[in-house]
Write a protein that binds this DNA or RNA. Sequence first.
DNA 1: CATAAAATGATTGACGTCTATCATTTCATG
DNA 2: CATGAAATGATAGACGTCAATCATTTTATG
Lengths: 350, 350
Amino acid sequence: MRKPTLQDVARTAGVSYATADRVINKRGGVAQKSILRVRNAIRDLGYERDFHAANLSRKRHFHFRFVLPNSDHSFFRALHAAVEAETIRQRADRVMLSVVEVPAHDPDAQAAALEADGLDCDCVAIVATEAPRLSAAIKALRARGVSVVTLVGDAAPEFRTAYVGIDNVVAGRMAGRLLRMAHIARPGLVLPVLGALGARDHRERLDGLRAVIAEDGHAIRLCDPIIVHDHPEAMRRQLAQVLAETPSISGIYSIGAGNRGLLDVMAERGSSERPVVVLHELTPTSRTGLERGLIDAVIDQKPAQEVALTIEVMKAIVAGRDWRATVSEITPAIFLKDNLPATGLAGESA
Amino acid sequence: MRKPTLQDVARTAGVSYATADRVINKRGGVAQKSILRVRNAIRDLGYERDFHAANLSRKRHFHFRFVLPNSDHSFFRALHAAVEAETIRQRADRVMLSVVEVPAHDPDAQAAALEADGLDCDCVAIVATEAPRLSAAIKALRARGVSVVTLVGDAAPEFRTAYVGIDNVVAGRMAGRLLRMAHIARPGLVLPVLGALGARDHRERLDGLRAVIAEDGHAIRLCDPIIVHDHPEAMRRQLAQVLAETPSISGIYSIGAGNRGLLDVMAERGSSERPVVVLHELTPTSRTGLERGLIDAVIDQKPAQEVALTIEVMKAIVAGRDWRATVSEITPAIFLKDNLPATGLAGESA
DNA sequence: CATAAAATGATTGACGTCTATCATTTCATG
DNA sequence: CATGAAATGATAGACGTCAATCATTTTATG
């Protein structure tokens, strides 16, 4: 009844432990017929290697490095915190995590970080910004045998091994869908608020929004987006101005950061008079906004889960397993006033 | 630089391995001052016991049993599938999972299942239905040293050790919030559709809905709920009738199952003419409904995650750890047409 | 059939922990 | 200071695997 060991396999295959070991560890020098007998025994017994014992014996340990933006935006802090949290639990599995901080949205700094180290770790995860120099750095790392996983932001699809993150077009579509629900049987005017114009993820979200709104036919129109550079101050100023100029705005989709400014503007209005607001990332700010009824919905990419999943993918990569089996894509979550998770990291791991 | 072992701890504490071992395994017979020295060494070195090596040595293995409804409702099948999926990965951690099926909503059968076995397993998880007999069975099991975890459905809060599942009041509130979003600047009439009247989870969801709708003031009214006993046929018949009698119904909240019937009724209408629909659990049926635009939102309790979390809690319980540290509550998810996860089990694990 | 090459068996010492046993040292107490 | 109890040390075998060595058997080849 107990779990079979390699000893059991060897016995039922009629070979020695050494031969069975040669087979499962592909050491070579084994006759074809012996290989088959061992394989059959493995199948018949339902043998599975005890990975923990194996790792113990191998004294294998991995070093994974996270290259994260040093931005003080809440989302990135949450990412950072998630890595810290995982550091502890992963230690039990013999994997060490370390974090390098680089200036946000600075591909050159990112590339420099990859070029600087890379020798002393087995796999790198990076919040990437698209740029030729970064692509080159990723390619070079890969040539040195260090795989790169992008998370949250993707880059160099030909060279990085995997991407963990949400589909930003989907995220934009979700926002559009919510805004459509809020405009049933009435016309509307929706204002998209962009962070950076160049950022691909922001463009994708905008595309998603446009697609879903277009499907609605004619009742909802879109304003020209305003660009606030992820800054609360710019958000406050520009948003107040646009709302004053165009009082018919009935919905806002804030695609990037700087939402503290948005909350301020909403707080100045009667809550029944304000437009419907959808924005991104569950942060202390957006949480407050929901609780106070200043905004309606938050689309969240679950940073803790993203980090956990990234680590699983990295493990699969360095173990030579097919990491695609591991990737259950990150589905963005929707938070309303009523389903806010308990404070603390909502680190649903598992 | 490598992870310290108990040998290292003993050395820096200036005691023998045996004494360090006596301390961390609480075997007694150690002088207070030695205990302190070992504790300090553990702290200074940041020693953490290698659980895998420990389990290997102990040849500890656990047997957890799931008592699940044998209902063929998709949700329960998903639960069942999630347990199967976990069975494989948990084997690596020396825990065996087994499933017992009992008739749905039958507390006596549930109690019988608990009374029958219970001897050959270390912890039981059960989708519970409230009833005195079941409470007694859970109490008896506990007396025999077998902890019971309820999942999805709770019962006997005094006797079961933990509950893993969603807060159904929250779920109802979420539905209410979505329906409010769909009634901005227009009046509405919302029809709640109940499964069983007696089921506590359904009552709680209805309470949540009522609370949020009431906060809205006056614009939205609630119809008297109809009760369809989770049956597609009853759903189809009754729903068609009520909608015919009361054409002003602008929103539907289906609290239980039988939603195939609901889809049929919606399909007969023009998609622009139908009420807004919110229902529960992402199943093939509800998925189809979203894809075809027959319904608007699905509130899902993520069965795969519930199962994974249940197992974590059970592990913590039998290991004598504080399982409360493990429980990150299950936050219900919202699915729209646009964020449907790839088919297959959306098993976001570990 | 002799010989080399290939395949196999047997065994050993790790890895970090648990559990147990037995010998030795330290301590309090009369 | 003698005595027994308490505390400590030392050590060994297991858990399931890896990695290596060396001896032995089987097989192919001329």
